[in-house]
Design a protein around this nucleic acid. Structure first.
Lengths: 210, 210
DNA sequence: CTGATATATGAAACAGGCTTCAGGTTTGGC
DNA sequence: GCCAAACCTGAAGCCTGTTTCATATATCAG
């Protein structure tokens, strides 16, 4: 039988010191990947920015791609958490959407580099992109379903289609405003977005049941 | 004074034979870039698929990136042409949107690989991505303005914001349906998309002026 | 303080793919 | 048929960046 290749043990750091170092590398990787792009980014650059030696990188990640994947996972998690927190207190579902969009724009603004990372993932690992969007969509869809049950969103809309449509809108506008213009949307643009969502999502008016 | 680096002359082929060869390389590049991603894709693979020798590539392109850029430009042009043609005969502007979306999905389906290329451009040259979307948006915006003038689209929507919102929707849904599911949207999904666009874009009903 | 464990170092080995170039081959006008 | 221009060839050079590893340092419980 073929000898099994022993996977290099990549430490999950067991001491605070190790965890700090790992995080420093990840932070630097976010910067470097975001600024230079996956392929321009070098381990040398990442470790230099992290203030550690080249070899240290390989203590925590089996290779370059692994660090990239970690970053995408972190991005996904943070994004979902932030949006969930932001909309938690909002009653009306259409209003929730609007708050969700705004939160997303803030996120892209604050994690500018991190968000570039996702757009690059297409040429690193397409499955990772899919995973990202499907994960986001999952939560989105169940939220929409719940809102439909309560009559807050038009009942005839297919939730999955709606979810992808909304995610696409958010991303496109986020790219335009936050990554290119580097500023938040004007009042007029905001009004348009709000009107767009209101009309598309809000159920046709009828006399409210008492 | 420093000697000026002479830019290598990259032929615009002057004979039919040369043009064929150049096109063969471009076609192969579309396949290979699309399937493998920019960085996995090698000139060796591209030229092999094109049925030419390695060196031939450098007769027509100064380097790998140049071929990639050419591809993006071609994608952009083809896409705009196809959509323009498809919506040419359609009267109602909201209906035009729907036809435009359908055409886009067809395009993604037929040029599956070519379309992956754009998503990868983020890690090759961000400016190229921006160019692509801004070019598309430009035409979109003027179309929307015209429609607003004719009262076919709600007048209170900012055209630029609307254009980016719609492009984002199209791309997200196109990715989901054409690249992942590899099939055209179900009737239910189509209805949802139509309803979404109708409600968001169509001006509020009022008795039509005679 | 001491040994055991975890972490860190960075020069050098290594790999893989881009690019060059010194010729060969094809084409088409005359 | 002949020749000049255009086109094509592919082995080898080259360069850049990833990954390894033998060695050094830090931490901490006992």
């Amino acid at each position: 039988m073929a000898e099994r290749a022993v996977a290099r043990v990549v430490a999950v750091p067991s001491t605070p010191r190790g965890q700090r170092t790992r995080q420093r590398i990840l932070d630097a990787a976010e910067r470097v990947f975001g600024e230079l792009g996956y392929h321009q980014a070098g381990i040398v650059e990442i470790t230099q920015q992290a203030g550690v030696a080249l070899g240290t990188f390989y203590l925590y990640f089996p290779d370059k791609r692994a660090a990239f994947e970690d970053l995408v996972h972190a991005l996904n998690r943070r994004l979902r958490t932030e949006i969930a927190t932001a909309i938690a207190g909002v009653e009306d579902r259409v209003e929730r959407e609007i708050v969700g969009f705004e939160t997303f724009f803030h996120f892209v603004d604050r994690h500018r580099n991190l968000y570039q990372v996702i757009r690059q993932a297409a040429s690193v690992d397409p499955e990772l992109v899919r995973w990202h969007y499907e994960t986001l969509a999952k939560g989105y869809v169940s939220g929409l379903r719940a809102a439909q049950a309560k009559g807050e969103i038009a009942a005839d809309l297919d939730p999955t289609t709606t979810a992808y449509a909304l995610m696409g809108m958010a991303e496109s506008l986020g790219m335009r405003w936050m990554l290119w213009d580097r500023r938040f949307p004007s009042a007029g643009a905001r009004r348009t977005l709000r009107a767009f969502l209101e009309r598309a999502l809000r159920p046709p008016k009828r006399t409210a049941a008492p």
